[in-house]
């Protein structure tokens, strides 16, 4: 376990149980992924490019959540709260998609 410190607030003492990874190294990897995502945009294969770009965006987001936001040090319940929020979006998308994507609509394009 990394360093453990306490914060004294008005009501109680809070324990800081998560560590501080090498933030600069993580930032370097994130910038590298950004450059890579711009490069795959020039592949010329649209489906492959878009899939890779969104895959790399997901990797960036997970790195930020896990390391900068320290979610990997938090109780699993907090991770499940986030997963539930994202799952709710999936339910919304797949529940509405058949009507929006495949049914002709008289709305502005």
């Amino acid at each position: 376990m990394g360093q453990t410190t306490t914060h004294h607030t008005q009501n109680k003492v809070e324990k800081d149980y998560h560590g501080h990874p090498n933030y600069i190294k993580i930032w370097g990897v994130l910038v590298g992924i950004l450059v890579l995502s711009l490069a795959v945009g020039e592949l010329g294969h649209k489906v492959l490019s878009v899939t890779l770009i969104f895959g790399l965006a997901l990797v960036k987001a997970i790195m930020v959540i896990g390391n900068f936001m320290h979610l990997k040090w938090e109780p699993k319940l907090l991770t499940w709260v986030m997963i539930f929020a994202v799952a709710a979006l999936g339910i919304f998308y797949f529940g509405v998609a058949p009507d929006v994507v495949y049914v002709e609509m008289k709305i502005a394009k």
């Binding site: 376990m1 324990k15 149980y17 109780p75 907090l78």
Partner: peptide, 22 residues
């Protein structure tokens, strides 16, 4: 400095941090 994850109980999460995640 090496950092390892450990099992933390939800009751140990400071109120402010839990609220921010919410």
């Amino acid at each position: 400095m090496a950092h390892t994850t450990q099992t933390v109980d939800i009751s140990e999460v400071p109120n402010g941090r839990a609220a921010m995640w919410w």
